[in-house]
Design a protein around this nucleic acid. Sequence first.
DNA 1: TTGAAAGCGCTAACAC
DNA 2: GTGTTAGCGCTTTCAA
Lengths: 335, 335
Amino acid sequence: MEFKRPPTIRDVASAAGVSIATVSKFINGQQRFSPEVEQRLRDAIATLGYRLNQQARSMVTGQTRTFGLAILDVRNPHFANIVKGANRIALENDYNLLVVDLEERPSHERHLLEALSGRVDGLIVSSRIPDDSIEWLGELGKPVVFFGQHKRPGVRCVRTDGYRAGYLMGLHLVEAGRKRIAYLGFPKARWNSERLTGVRVALAESNQTVQEYAVEWPTLDGGQQAAAALLRSSQRPDAIVAYNDLVAIGLLHEAASMGIKVPDELAIAGFDDIPVSRFMQPPLTTVNMRSEEQGEAAMQLLLESVRNKSNMGRDILLEPQLVPRASTAPAGSQG
Amino acid sequence: MEFKRPPTIRDVASAAGVSIATVSKFINGQQRFSPEVEQRLRDAIATLGYRLNQQARSMVTGQTRTFGLAILDVRNPHFANIVKGANRIALENDYNLLVVDLEERPSHERHLLEALSGRVDGLIVSSRIPDDSIEWLGELGKPVVFFGQHKRPGVRCVRTDGYRAGYLMGLHLVEAGRKRIAYLGFPKARWNSERLTGVRVALAESNQTVQEYAVEWPTLDGGQQAAAALLRSSQRPDAIVAYNDLVAIGLLHEAASMGIKVPDELAIAGFDDIPVSRFMQPPLTTVNMRSEEQGEAAMQLLLESVRNKSNMGRDILLEPQLVPRASTAPAGSQG
DNA sequence: TTGAAAGCGCTAACAC
DNA sequence: GTGTTAGCGCTTTCAA
C-alpha cells in the first residue's frame, strides 16, 4: 500500500466548484455560506477524505496549539507524574502536549530541544546540564519553563523546595532516634545538594553529622548496587536517606536480601513519593515533592506566557511534604 | 521580555549580501561557495542568531524526520519501557520521537492521534479502542504500527503472544501445586482475554478451572481495591494471576495488610515484568512481555515503512518469557 | 559559483 | 457570500 499525496484545499475547492478561500473559511467555521455551497463542500471533503495540514496552517498563523515537555527519563515515575500533570492542564486548555525523553544524555539535549522547539508554542524543560551551559534556553525564541532555578531572564521556573524537603527528612529521622544517618546521593542531579544540605542542617541542630555516599544512577539498580558497600561497612548507618524513592527501593531490597531488618536495624527513606512507595514492604517513608503539581504549575506558567506574549512574571516554589511510613518507624516500635 | 520574530534566511541573505538560495544551500551543506562568501554567511548567521525553521522545511520536503508514539498511560512502566525502546532505535537512526499520552480516554484518542500524525513521518499506536472503531488509523495517510492485532491493510502490528504468556503462567501455578487459581483481569484491555484463555487452557490440562474477577483500572490502586473482596471471600483462592504487575503489587500489599502470607497461603503473579517487580517483598513472579523490545520492533517496522514508502510486510510476534520468583514458590518451600 | 523564481498547503486582507 | 491575491520560511529546478 502506497501513500499517495493527500488532498489539499485546492482539490476540495475544484471538486466543490468554489475558491480555496471559501474552503479555508468553511473548514475554520468562521463564516457561513449558502446551504448548497456548504453541502457541496461537505461532500467534496468527505469523498476526497480531505484533512487539514496543520503544518501549513501554523506556517501562516505562527501557532501550533501544542506545547513540548522534555524530561530526563520516562522510566522514573517522578517524571511520569510531571507528564500527567502537564498533560491534564494542556488538554483542558485545548493544547496538545508532545513529550520527548532526553535519556539522561546531555550531549543530545540541545539538539533534541531545538528540534522540539520548532514544533511547539512553548516548552517545559527538565535538564541535568549546569545552568551556565544552557544559556541558549532563552534563545529558543519560545516561552520556556524550567524545572529548577535559572536566573536567565525569559525563563520561568518551577521547583519544589529541596532544602526544606531534606530538612524535614533529617528532623524526622532524628526524632525517630536514629544516630548514624547517611545520605546516599546522586551528585549529578540539580537537586542533590539542596536535599543534602537540608538533611545536614537538621542533623546539626542535634549535633549530628551525616555520612555521604553516592550512586551512579538514580534508579532501582543504582540503589541496589550502592547498597552492598554501604551495608557491609563495619560502621553501618542506622538510617539511610536516598536521593529518591527508586534508589531507596533498591536499598530496601538489598537490605532484605542481607537479612537486615527494616526499620528495626536500619531506617530507609527517599524523596518523590512515587506511587509504588506506599506499596513496599515495609511501606517507604518519603517526601512528597509534588511531581504532578510541578507539571501542572509549569503548564500554567506556559499558558500565561503564551497569552501575554511575554515571559515575565513570578516563578513557582512548591512546599514539599513529609510522608512518614513504616520504613523509618522508631526501632522496636514494630515487628 | 517579548518574543521578536526570529530571523529568516532572507535576513541572513541580505546581511551577507547573497541570495536566499545561496543561504539555503549553504546551511544544508550541499554545496561549497567561495571562501569569502562562506565567511560572510557564517558571520551573518552568528550575529543574527539565525536558526532553521524546521516546519517550513518539512512543508517543502514533506519530511519531518520525526516519529510519533501514542501510549495509554506514561505512568505504567510497561509503556515507559516501550517509549525507551522506540526512542533508542529512533535516535540511532537520526529520527526524533514525540510521545503523546492518551490518558486512557477513548474519546480524545482520535483527535490527539490526528494532531500527532500531522507532525510526523509515521506513528506507533497503542490503543484501547476496539478494532472496528479505529478503521481510520489506516487513513491517517502515514505509516502506522499498531500494538496488537489489526487486519486492516496498511497497518503493521507488533505484539507479544498473550495466549502463550497466560499458558506459561497457568502451567507454572499448577506445577507449584496450586489448587484454587483465580484470574483478576481488566476486561477493557485488548490483551485481557488472550491471557485469560492461556491460563484457562493450562489449568484445563489438569482438570482445573479458573475463577474470574475484574479490576476497574489496571493500576496499583485498582489491584488494591479489588483485593478486599477477593481475599475476604470464604473460598479464597490459593493463587491469583493479575492482569499486570501493577495490579499484582496492589494485591500483594493488601494481602500483607490482611496478614495473609505470600506465597505460603497465597501465590500472586502478574504480567509485564516491570522493573520494580523484582524488588518487591516477596519478589513478584511475572511474565516478561518484552515491553522494551516491543518498542524497538515497532520502530524498526516504522523505519522500514518509511524507507520503502510502503506499508507492506510482516507483522511481529514476540515470545513471552516466564519469570518465576518467590511470590509463587510452592507453599512451605520458604518462610 | 551564484541567483531568480516557482511553489509546499494554508490564512487573511481586501475586492466584488 | 464568494473570489483574488499576497505571503508564512523554506527547497529546488533552471538559468546565468
